[in-house]
Amino acid sequence: MPDPAPRGNILPLDTAPGHNRRRAETAAWLLMAEELRYERGGRCLLDGISFALSPSGITALLGPNGAGKSLLLRLLGGLIRPDSGRIRFDPAFDGSTGMVFQKPVLLRRSVRANLDHALRIARIPRRQRTGRIAELLVMADLTHCAESPARALSGGEQQRLTMARALVNKPRLLLLDEPTASLDPAATAGFEALTREIARMGTKIMLVTHDLHQARRIADDVIFIHKGRIHEQGPTTAFFAAPRSPEARAYCAGTLIT
C-alpha cells in the first residue's frame, strides 16, 4: 500500500538536522545506560535499566501506561538524575538533544515567536532566524497560523509545533514522547516520513509510542518496558514476529493488565 502523501515538506538536505555532524561512526552506541534506578515517594519507578542505544536509526520505546517511558526519556535527556546507575555517552557526541514532551509546553506567544525564542536560545544569529523559521513552519505545516497564539492551536498543531521547536538546533539525539498521539492520519504520515528523513541524515531518534503499527513502520529496534524494568530489546521485526517475554506478548495482543 502506498504511503498517503505526507503533509508539509521534508527538510531540504542541507538544512536537515545532524547533517553537519555526519562522520565515520566509531562507537557502537550513542549512549549506554547502566543499571539506572529512579525512585520517588518510596516507589521504585525505574530499576535495573541497562541498554545500549545504537548510534543511528529509530528506536521505539514501548510499554503500557505508567511503565516509566516518559521518566526514562527525561533521564536520557538529563532533565532528572538517576538515584543510582549512570548514563555514558559516546565521547564524540556533542550533547545536542531535542526533546518533545508528552504534554506540549508552549510559551504564551505566537507560533512564530515560539520558534524564534528557541532559535535565540540556540544562539542562531538574527539574520538566519527568519529563514529558518519559515522552513520550520513549512515542515510542520503551520505557515497558515504562524501569527496565532501558540496555546490556542489545536492539539495536533501544538504537537507539530513542539516537534519543529525540538529541531531548531539540529540535534544529534531526538527524544520524542508520543509525538503523534493527537495527529490525524495525514499528519502522522507526514511525521513518520519526516522522522525517517531526519534519522537518515544522522540524527538518532528515540520514540515513545503506543501505536504498534507506527513502531513497526518506522522503528529499527524496540525496547519494551513494564513496571520500570526492561523486559525485551531487539530488532523490530524480531520483536513483532515473536515477542519473547510474556508481558510483551500480552501487551502486543492488547491483553496486558497493568
Partner: peptide, 8 residues
Amino acid sequence: YDEMLRAM
C-alpha cells in the same frame, strides 16, 4: 516552563 527550557 522549567523542563522545556532546560531541554533547550
